[in-house]
């Protein structure tokens, strides 16, 4: 056997990097096979533009927490965040468990979760040029909305988007583990998606919610998946509120990471009991 077996921490990091690079490479090659689909997937997330039109119209006639121009920028940010945080891992897992493709992967020395994660990262990179083109097109059609955030704000936005993606991935991966018990875990994700769109701030900014709903929503995982990075990009959110939201985000990441690992172990026992 000439396969390298990592021993020291440095070796492990190098081995992990090689695996991540290999998974990314394969994932990217796979995604670029679907050029036409990538454009369609990017366009499919155009709901924020529809809601942008509706809310901007409404805001010209009433008093809202955000100005019409802020609303335009908010929904543009929602569009960008959705592009960068789209997750479909549940359908992948469902297909593998039910189609019998999981067994061969279990016999490879890398957790299948890494494959899914790197597939998502690779898809993001492949999709980026199309999503960026749509943003440029938007500014060309609506130059008044153009704005340049500070470097610090942009950096914080990108970190929060990465964290939002991670949390969305962990939540859906946790739900995906239910595939070991039920044939249609995707129906549970449909409910999760409705909550995500509503409490995440895709339908309306959380700033518009009644205080009681807002108070509950703030403790759920959803606002940090969309509203938080979008509002940070626009600016004007008190630092304490951002800090609290980040703490909630980190807390939910830990909760769903632990839950997904526990369900994975229990699921594998179940998978084995059913005959693998």
């Amino acid at each position: 056997m000439s396969a390298l077996q990592p021993t020291s921490v440095g070796d492990r990091i190098r081995a992990g990097w090689r695996i991540a690079r290999g998974l990314f490479r394969a994932g990217y090659a796979y995604m670029t096979e679907y050029r036409a689909e990538l454009i369609l997937w990017a366009l499919a997330n155009s709901l924020p533009f529809i809601l942008m039109g509706a809310w901007t119209q409404a805001s010209t006639r009433g008093h809202f927490a955000l100005s019409p121009l802020d609303l335009v920028r908010y929904f543009l940010a929602v569009f960008v965040v959705r592009q960068l945080t789209v997750v479909w891992v549940l359908w992948e897992v469902e297909q593998q468990v039910q189609g019998g493709k999981l067994a061969p992967q279990l016999l490879q020395p890398v957790d299948p979760a890494w494959r899914h994660l790197m597939n998502h990262v690779a898809e993001r990179v492949a999709r980026l040029p199309f999503a960026a083109s749509l943003v440029v097109l938007f500014f060309a059609l609506y130059p008044a909305a153009f704005f340049v955030p500070s470097a610090m704000t942009l950096a914080l936005f990108l970190v929060l988007v990465a964290a939002a993606f991670l949390l969305r991935f962990l939540v859906q991966y946790t739900l995906a583990m239910l595939c070991f018990w039920t044939e249609r875990a995707s129906s549970i994700e449909q409910l999760n998606f409705v909550l995500y769109m509503f409490l995440g701030g895709a339908i309306a900014p959380l700033d518009f919610f009644p205080p009681a709903v807002r108070a509950v929503a703030d403790w759920t995982p959803f606002p940090s998946m969309m509203w938080l990075p979008c509002r940070v990009l626009l600016g004007g959110v008190p630092t304490a509120e951002v800090a609290r939201a980040v703490a909630v985000l980190v807390g939910w990441c830990v909760v769903f990471f632990v839950a997904s690992r526990l369900l994975w172990r229990a699921g594998l026992r179940r998978f084995s009991a059913m005959g693998a």
């Binding site: 695996i19 690079r21 290999g22 490479r25 490879q108």
Partner: peptide, 11 residues
Amino acid sequence: ETFRLNAAIYG
């Protein structure tokens, strides 16, 4: 591509 992927996975 699968061969390369497996090579990365197995180091």
